[in-house]
Design a protein around this nucleic acid. Structure first.
Lengths: 157, 157
DNA sequence: GCCGAGGTACTCGGATACGATTTGTCCGAGTTAGAATGG
DNA sequence: CCATTCTAACTCGGACAAATCGTATCCGAGTACCTCGGC
């Protein structure tokens, strides 16, 4: 099991957008991160559909965050790219085979599914507690405060 | 992103094996859960390689747990089937493009990768805290104590 | 000089091929149980 | 009757196809800016 590469790109793009004072087209985002423009566009499309970013067409158009970077969690981005589905989907094995449990007896979730759901909830909780603003702040600390400034400068050029 | 179906099968098989007083061949496990025998064998193979179960060849052979059900965590099984790799693998985007950070400056993990790693650790921690014995106990409670007894009886028949 | 219409260039959006990973299947190697045979 | 050998059936293990999902790409729809012409 692995997460789509698009998640990483989307997160970096959101951090970049949080530093932009103007709209940023996908061409420019792709250039900055050195990734295939056409494929990145697909991810941005997903972000747009999920309401994380807003798109503006036409000359001078591009993408912008729909709300403050502090209001966008990492989970929002992950769900937008990877879909809302759970890692683990119970196929109700207990209802199959010679010892099948009748459906009316299955009032509670299967214990296996429950365990996986609990773990997944913990995962989601952590991601929901981290915002794009947090990511940006950490990046800045790691680079001694130059990284975000460089990005802002580059975006204006 | 989704977890392999084999994980669910493997977990149920481990619960079943925890109730067995003798070796259980893959044919019988497949019959009980109503899944393709040949494919289930593949998952059991993975469990065997990971040291979760022990296999015995020849007539009267089959599988058994290598240790007590209380000593086997759900995480052990998941890792055995799905592999030890992380969901998220950082491709070091920060080292690419016009604003690439030189490698010697990358002493700390990327903040994006760190966020994902934290979330994944939380997920693993939950799964590491749940054992096959716990799963069995919960199944039994949900079925008013009949499910495991039925399994034990069926295994002897 | 000002206003408006038109064209053009640039943007995003969905539909479309390719590749990799997961899923599913098969046959061969190894081992044990049992039967047959000789003592 | 017992020990030994042989056979045969049953088990797992790794190697082999098919399907699904993620990756990558292209071309069309839409919009804003700029230019050009008329007033």
């Amino acid at each position: 099991m692995k997460l789509s590469n698009g998640v990483e790109w989307a997160l970096h793009c959101c951090v970049t957008l949080s530093q932009a004072s103007t709209l940023v087209p996908s061409q420019r985002l792709a250039e900055l991160h050195d990734v295939p423009m056409t494929y990145l566009a697909k991810q941005l499309q997903a972000l747009s559909r999920a309401g994380v970013v807003h798109s503006w067409q036409g000359q001078g158009g591009g993408y912008s965050l729909t709300r403050s970077a502090r209001e966008i969690s990492v989970l929002d981005v992950v769900v937008a790219i990877d879909g809302p589905g759970d890692f683990f989907r119970c196929t109700e094995i207990r209802q199959r085979g010679p010892l099948a449990v009748p459906e009316e007896k299955c009032t509670k979730m299967c214990s296996v599914a429950r365990a996986m759901a609990t773990a997944e909830a913990a995962w989601r909780e952590v991601l929901a507690g981290i915002t794009i603003a947090d990511l940006a702040a950490n990046i800045d600390v790691a680079s001694s405060g130059t990284a975000l400034k460089d990005v802002r400068t580059w975006l204006k050029a």
